[in-house]
Design a protein around this nucleic acid. Structure first.
Lengths: 177, 177
DNA sequence: CTTACTGTACCGGCTGGACGGTCTTGTCAA
DNA sequence: TTGACAAGACCGTCCAGCCGGTACAGTAAG
């Protein structure tokens, strides 16, 4: 599983995300990723035998990172609910100017089914949130609003100002209770 | 400006949307669109000299349709605000099982800048909504939640059940006041 | 009426380039 | 020496855009 000399896998995954973000999702070619990762095409294909496997790797890495970040937030002192941890985490993620998951568009273009694990993850997360509240309406509003924030960030639509985002987050936290 | 025999432009735009929806955004090739529209490749290139122009046409047509639909809703009797019209329109749009704007992914892959008019439109819409309320926090929550609904529909993530969507819409309408 | 000319709408084979994936040829640590 | 891994030339495929046609409608001179 582990590479012997260096961990090329993670370098490659990071390079793929970088290429998609900087050159556009349509420019995510194996050559571009390899070059960006400081690796030859052969080297890339050794680690990810197929472009599809690379996409899959991106999805898995994204999901495990997100999971870890959410768990860390939820474990922090002063969080009354997973929902508020999710809100704050998403607010921070979306505060960054450049979207970090542009590669998702490449994955969808390759095959929409690549996002199935992400859908499953979100479904699971929603179930978890449902379990900790009895106000389903408010939960849904918050959940969808977060989804909207993430989507706007992904599409690089900076429709909201900094102040507005802060107001939004505090409104959401209030609704979340 | 107006074609003499038939209106190929609209047939082509519809065909492009269909191809992206049914064969996936990565399969939106000129040949596929032409064939679907019952037109030769040359004919397509005659109407849209470049793939970029086709994407642009898709965006413009989408925006003008949306504008018209929103205006129609807002003009209907019994609507106290543009926001509630926007909520109801979006709920209907997202109720449909299959996402109708999958072509957006193709456009982004081609060049992310194609979405600039859409961002501008959303910004403009938000400004319009701001003007009709003094509770900015609630407006932002609603606006982003709608964005979330639309994004989920676009990504074909049916995380919400029918009942949950209804509950969400009624909660949003209540927040919108 | 007819012939010649013009512009519009459309057709489909072709090409040049990009890209995913393979294959041969290294290279280097053990 | 060997074998895990890297390098990059190479091949087949796909696709955007180009180009030389075709059909037809309108116009206008003869």
């Amino acid at each position: 599983m582990r590479p012997r000399r260096a961990n090329s896998r993670e370098k490659i995954l990071a390079a793929a995300a970088d290429v998609a973000r900087e050159a556009g999702p349509g420019s995510l070619s194996l050559e571009a990723v390899a070059s960006r990762a400081g690796v030859s095409k052969g080297g890339l294909l050794y680690n990810f035998p197929t472009k599809a496997k690379l996409m899959q790797g991106l999805v898995e890495s994204y999901l495990s990172d997100f999971q870890k970040a959410l768990e860390a937030r939820a474990a922090e002192a002063g969080h009354e609910s997973v929902l508020s941890a999710y809100i704050k985490l998403s607010a921070d993620d979306c505060g960054r100017p450049k979207p970090s998951a542009t590669w998702m568009f490449s994955a969808i273009a390759e095959d929409p089914d690549f996002l199935t694990p992400i859908k499953a993850f979100k479904h699971q997360l929603l179930e978890r949130l449902k379990a900790e509240t009895d106000d389903l309406g408010s939960l849904l509003v918050c959940f969808l609003a977060i989804e909207g924030m993430r989507s706007m960030n992904l599409f690089d639509s900076d429709v909201l100002s900094e102040d507005e985002r802060k107001l939004l987050v505090s409104s959401l936290l209030k609704i979340a209770g």
